[in-house]
């Protein structure tokens, strides 16, 4: 695993993050509804660690990631970021100047490498853009040197830096995107579904590259936003499961997959298709009824109760708080009234 530094304070500490989108109507933009995309999310990430944010579409995982780099402005909450071991600053309230500096340290990687690279710029121009904009290099030749070493780092031939993105395959493009993200020497990389747009056989290239880079650039920290549980299990140190804007379970990867404590986690693990016919056919799959709740009009009590097979009356009325039921060494946060009582199935 990676070099996680548990002793000092976390690199990122998110407290009660909220992002509400208002649906407006008409010329005067009257507010007709509120979508609570992110609704009171708290977590922290240690330096050098990979935290995965997992959930189905519309659960708020992408919005959470975007709030952390202020690509989206949060409605409420704090995001404390320990910038170069100085006193933490709150990303949610920093001014424009600080934000610019911050965005050299925190970088975002997109899902679709076909839309995230400007087709009208060469690979060199794309990768050198953050360097030139932020004046991290003095001149073109220095920029070329940097781009060359960045391309080598992501295992691409530096001689190809004057080609345009259309000359590269999906996997190669995603590596170009990684090189661009790493150009200003960041400490924190938010990777939003970095492999789900790629062919199966090349996904592993990108996953392994991200892992290797974390090892090489000691202290590189990832927030890994994904929906594919097998990929998450392979890639992350800790996992946070989100459902309709809230975290329902958060713990160390092993523990989460072996002994899930939230019925939603159990169902997700059970539903994940696994390329192993014997195992798949042996296990009795849990098929959740219904669909993900509408975040504009969520159910009462626990948002998951209409689909939960363990739901009792209290679940319909009272929202369960996210609480720690683990040990001091291994915290295990879960938002379920019956977390201690239920024995849920994980992987075998």
């Amino acid at each position: 695993m990676s070099d996680i530094d548990n002793s000092s304070r976390p690199l990122v500490e998110v407290r009660d993050l909220r992002k509400y989108f208002e649906a407006t109507h008409g010329l005067l933009r009257k507010v007709v509804g509120t979508v609570k995309a992110v609704d009171g999310v708290s977590f922290s990430i240690q330096q050098g660690e990979t935290l995965a944010l997992v959930g189905e579409s519309g659960c708020g995982k992408t919005t959470t990631g975007r709030c952390l780099i202020r690509a989206v402005d949060p409605s409420a909450g704090s995001i404390r970021y320990s910038f170069d071991n100085a006193d933490p600053i709150d990303i949610a309230t920093v001014d424009k100047h600080q934000l610019r500096e911050l965005r050299r340290s925190i970088r975002l990687m997109f899902q679709d490498p076909y839309s995230s690279l400007n087709p009208r710029m060469t690979v060199f121009q794309i990768i050198s853009e953050p360097l030139l904009i932020n004046k991290l290099v003095q001149n073109q030749s220095e920029a070329r040197d940097r781009v060359q070493s960045l391309l080598q780092m992501v295992h691409l031939n530096p001689n190809k830096m004057d080609r345009y993105p259309h000359a590269f395959s999906g996997g190669q493009r995603q590596r170009i995107a990684i090189a661009r993200a790493l150009a200003p020497k960041p400490r924190f990389l938010i990777a939003d579904e970095p492999v789900s747009a790629l062919d199966v056989s090349v996904q592993a290239q990108v996953l392994n590259l991200l892992k290797d880079l974390q090892h090489e650039l000691r202290g590189l920290t990832y927030l890994f936003v994904a929906h594919n549980l097998s990929v998450v299990k392979y890639q992350s140190d800790r996992v946070a499961i989100m459902y309709v804007g809230k975290i329902v379970e958060l713990t160390v990867t092993e523990e989460l997959f072996l002994t899930p404590k939230h019925p939603y986690t159990e169902a997700l693990i059970s539903a994940a298709p696994d390329p192993e016919p014997r195992a798949v056919r042996r296990k009795k799959r849990i098929v959740l009824a219904g669909e993900v709740a509408n975040p504009a009009d969520p159910p009462s009590g626990c948002y998951f109760h209409p689909r939960c097979r363990y739901a009792k009356d209290v679940c319909r009325t009272t929202e369960p708080p996210l609480r720690d039921i683990g040990t001091a060494q291994q915290p295990h946060q879960v938002a379920c009234h019956f977390a201690e009582e239920l024995t849920l199935r994980g992987i075998e």
Binding site: A71, R103, E129, N134, R180
Partner: peptide, 11 residues
Amino acid sequence: DFVTAAELDGA
């Protein structure tokens, strides 16, 4: 995405 990326680059 590529415009957002450039914006985050500080353009």
